[in-house]
Computed example of a mutant assay.
Amino acid sequence: MPVAAIADYDDNNIFARILRGEIPNKTVYEDQWALAFHDINPQAPVHVLVIPKGRYVSWADFSKQASTEEVAGFVRAVGTVGEMLGLEAPGYRLLANAGLDAHQEVPHLHVHIFGGRKLGPMLVRRTEG
């Protein structure tokens, strides 16, 4: 699914629908700024998504449009969730895809939290040749 331009937030994307309570989720954490829930197609033993409650497509959109309180609240929520899940000591990975080349599938800013095992290198290294 193509990601909309910053001004083109899709109010019917799956995360917007989850925020409105139209689609159930397995909530891990919620506060006034963010919602965290288990991914329906986990890529690691622990795979949780953290989304801001505002209508933001990407980090660029969020950093330009969100209030200082929203930014701080969202960043704190991501850290809180990692700690709540017991991932702080063994380690975990945060991933936020932005745009088509990064394979962002839902046009709502979100951070993936991966953990529960050694995750290996972040990207497959390709040799030139």
Rank of each mutant, 00 (worst) to 15 (best):
A89K: 14
Q43W: 02
I6R: 01
L100H: 11
D11H: 15
A5R: 12
A98E: 06
E22H: 07
I18R: 11
K26N: 14
S63E: 11
Y9R: 03
A7M: 12
H112C: 04
M1C: 05
G21L: 11
M1G: 08
A98P: 00
L19V: 10
L119S: 01
D39T: 11
K118Y: 01
G129D: 01
G82C: 06
V81S: 11
D101Y: 02
N13V: 00
H112D: 07
A5C: 06
N25H: 11
V111T: 08
G91S: 00
M1D: 03
E83Y: 00
H38N: 15
N97H: 09
A98T: 08
T80L: 01
A7R: 10
V78Q: 09
R126H: 10
G79D: 12
L35H: 04
H103S: 10
Y56A: 13
F114P: 05
D39P: 08
N12Y: 00
F37I: 04
R126M: 12
H112L: 10
F37L: 00
E22Y: 11
R76M: 10
N25D: 03
P107I: 03
F62H: 10
L19N: 04
Y92D: 04
G73E: 15
L100C: 05
W59M: 06
V81A: 14
A5D: 08
L85N: 09
A60I: 11
G73I: 15
F37W: 06
V81W: 11
S67Y: 08
R126A: 14
Q104A: 07
A44T: 02
H103M: 11
L94N: 13
L35S: 04
A96G: 04
H38D: 12
L19G: 08
F74S: 02
G115T: 07
R117G: 03
A66Q: 01
G129F: 01
L19S: 09
P45G: 09
A77N: 00
P121M: 15
E22V: 15
R55A: 08
G79I: 06
V3Y: 02
V50C: 09
E128T: 14
R20Y: 11
G54N: 05
G82H: 08
T27P: 01
L109N: 13
L123Q: 14
A72I: 04
G79S: 12
A44Q: 07
E128M: 06
E88R: 12
P24G: 10
I14R: 00
F74I: 03
L94E: 10
D39M: 03
I6E: 06
P24F: 13
D11W: 15
E128K: 05
G116R: 00
K53W: 05
A77D: 05
F15T: 10
L109F: 13
T80V: 09
F74W: 02
G54P: 06
K64N: 02
L123A: 15
H110W: 08
V28M: 00
A72Q: 04
P52L: 02
N41G: 01
A5L: 05
G54D: 05
A96N: 13
L95Y: 14
G116W: 00
L95S: 15
P121K: 15
G82T: 15
G91W: 03
R117F: 01
H108I: 05
G116H: 00
Q65M: 05
P2C: 14
